[in-house]
Design a protein around this nucleic acid. Structure first.
Lengths: 222, 222
DNA sequence: ACAAGTATGTTGTTATAACAACAAGGAGGA
DNA sequence: TCCTCCTTGTTGTTATAACAACATACTTGT
């Protein structure tokens, strides 16, 4: 196991590689490889371990009864997923984890996080604190998505998202990390309708758009 | 301070009242009273402590530039709020906390959760684990809201929400904890349009509705 | 029981988003 | 370079949600 890699992840941050090695046993660490399209876990199941993507990437998605797919998160190397379910034993998954490309996943049991560790390793506390930080960040990004999709118009959602991006970048001009379809999925709107609205906003002099590059022209929205 | 009350909250669960008393100093505990309509904290600010509602209730809301209000959470006695921001120092609030009724709030600093406690109290770990559980539960409820609002039609959102409620109650007949306006806000739709859709669904034989009481008539949606 | 204030259901109109279908641009591979 | 695939923008049509306005319950307090 590449403990040097692990020591650079948010989860193991601040824990020396050699200590990580000894913790992995406690965490019942196990790796598994997946092919593109495979499910790591499915809606309705329960899990006892969280996953960390070692290489490749995983989509956290929800499919409704009509087959509409909604991507809630995209998890890349070094990031964890299903940690909330692992922390709440018996909780049924409301999402599925699907592999985007050949991916290696490290499973880590949360059992020994919630019981007193028999080895009393001092770094367990650090691990739990790291988990808390990760959980807080994830919570904020979920809240952010809710905020960005709370407007009832496409324009409102776009302005909410774009003005946030502008403040994040500290600049009215910035690139976004989504293509059109992904942005539409994120904002829960139709892609072509969104494309259309972007054009209108450009005609109205609110923004300029070129592919992934955006410029906000009016300061009122910042 | 009513440590017996605190020992029954999710945050202090499993910690004896006398130990809570000694922890409160560490957590820089301070209480403050608010009147209806007062802001505890506002969008754009930063906080260094989380809040626990001792009595009364608090709404966590986001207001967009057009004045549209979106309620993200309602926090009652014994529950905490702003804990994600307290765990991420410097992070600007994307929401405001507004008091619904005369409310007493206990502020708890998270400083000593992330540094090694000088008093080395064994219950600090328990506190952090409790935080983690709370964070996991809150994350799930945010995800759930995203899932319930990801359908593009009002009917789809209602079915998503109602079928979840049915599985939660383990029964096709159940009461919901929202009135119409609150449900509409939760699902990000117009109240009257939603009311209309509920009537249509009733006419279509999918559900029966009476005030807060719902019955799902078709099993395909469970 | 009454009055005042809320909450809910209903209707019609209007705005807007979804949808489908297509055209025009890149991007990447043979 | 050409060909193909994928992404993006555009248009017109249709479905649907927002909105406004109102009537009819329900609540609550007196």
């Amino acid at each position: 196991m590449d403990t040097l890699f692990l020591s650079k992840t948010d989860l193991f941050r601040g824990i020396p590689p050699e200590d990580i090695q000894s913790m992995l046993g406690c965490l019942k660490a196990a790796t598994k490889n997946y092919q593109r399209g495979e499910f790591i876990c499915r809606e309705g199941e329960t899990v006892t371990a969280m996953g960390m993507v070692l290489s490749g990437s995983v989509s956290i998605e929800n499919d409704d009864i009509w087959g509409n797919r909604s991507i809630l998160d995209r998890v890349g190397a070094g990031q964890i997923f299903a940690e909330n379910y692992a922390c709440l034993p018996g909780e049924k998954l409301m999402i599925s984890a699907v592999v985007n490309e050949p991916t290696e996943v490290l499973f880590l049991s949360t059992d020994c996080m919630f019981t007193v560790c028999p080895h009393a390793c001092g770094f367990h506390n650090r691990l739990i604190r790291n988990m808390l930080t990760i959980a807080a960040r994830k919570s904020l990004s979920l809240s952010r998505r809710i905020v960005h999709t709370s407007s009832k118009s496409i324009r409102g959602r776009l302005l909410s998202y774009l003005s946030f991006q502008a403040t994040q970048h500290g600049c009215r001009a910035f690139d976004i990390p989504f293509n059109r379809q992904q942005l539409a999925d994120y904002l829960s709107v139709d892609r072509s309708a969104m494309s259309n609205e972007l054009s209108k906003m450009q005609r109205d002099g609110i923004i300029t758009v070129d592919r992934n590059h955006f410029v906000l022209l009016q300061s009122d929205h910042l």
